[in-house]
Simulated assay, not measured.
Amino acid sequence: MVKFTASDFKQVLLGYGFAEGAANDYVEMFDTLDKGLMFEHIQETKPKMAGLSIEAFAKQFATAYR
């Protein structure tokens, strides 16, 4: 695996046409993911999942957006 510095990653994003603010947000998000902090709250609280299957969710979603 190759890791890039935050500044190199930001330069790549800017090169692809990202706005400065969006590039900063992406850099922050991936840094947070890399450090294992993105889902820290979920790990701490371990919320109970509703038990809804993906199929049932898809039906509810489709109904709501028709």
Rank of each mutant, 00 (worst) to 15 (best):
E55F: 05
F9T: 00
A19K: 15
P47L: 03
L14I: 06
R66M: 12
T45P: 02
T45L: 09
A6N: 11
E44D: 10
R66Y: 13
A64Y: 06
F9P: 00
H41N: 13
A64S: 08
Q11K: 15
N24M: 11
G17H: 05
A19G: 14
Y26F: 14
L52N: 10
A6M: 10
F4H: 09
M49R: 13
A23Y: 14
D34P: 01
A64D: 01
A62E: 12
H41D: 14
L37I: 08
P47K: 02
E55K: 02
D34L: 01
Y16L: 15
A19E: 15
M1F: 02
L33A: 05
N24G: 10
M29S: 05
M38P: 00
V2H: 13
I42G: 02
K10R: 15
K35W: 07
Q60R: 10
L14G: 04
R66F: 15
Q43I: 04
Q43L: 07
V27W: 03
K10Y: 04
F18C: 12
L33D: 00
T5P: 02
F30V: 02
A22S: 10
Q60I: 06
F61L: 11
H41S: 13
F30N: 01
A64T: 07
A19C: 11
V12S: 07
L37W: 07
G15L: 02
R66C: 13
M1Y: 05
E20M: 10
K3Q: 10
T5M: 05
L33C: 04
D34T: 02
A19N: 13
R66I: 10
A19Q: 15
M38T: 04
G36N: 02
F9S: 00
F61G: 08
G17R: 06
A50Q: 14
I54K: 14
F9Q: 01
D25T: 15
D34N: 03
M1Q: 08
L14P: 08
A58E: 11
T32D: 02
A23Q: 01
S7Y: 00
E28W: 09
Y26S: 01
E20A: 12
E40A: 00
S7V: 04
F61Y: 06
E55S: 06
G17Q: 06
V12N: 12
L37H: 07
A6Y: 06
G15E: 02
F18K: 15
D8K: 15
E28D: 12
A56Y: 12
Y65V: 14
A62F: 09
Q60D: 08
F61V: 07
L52K: 13
S53W: 07
P47I: 05
F57N: 08
N24K: 11
T32P: 03
K3R: 11
A56T: 14
K35R: 15
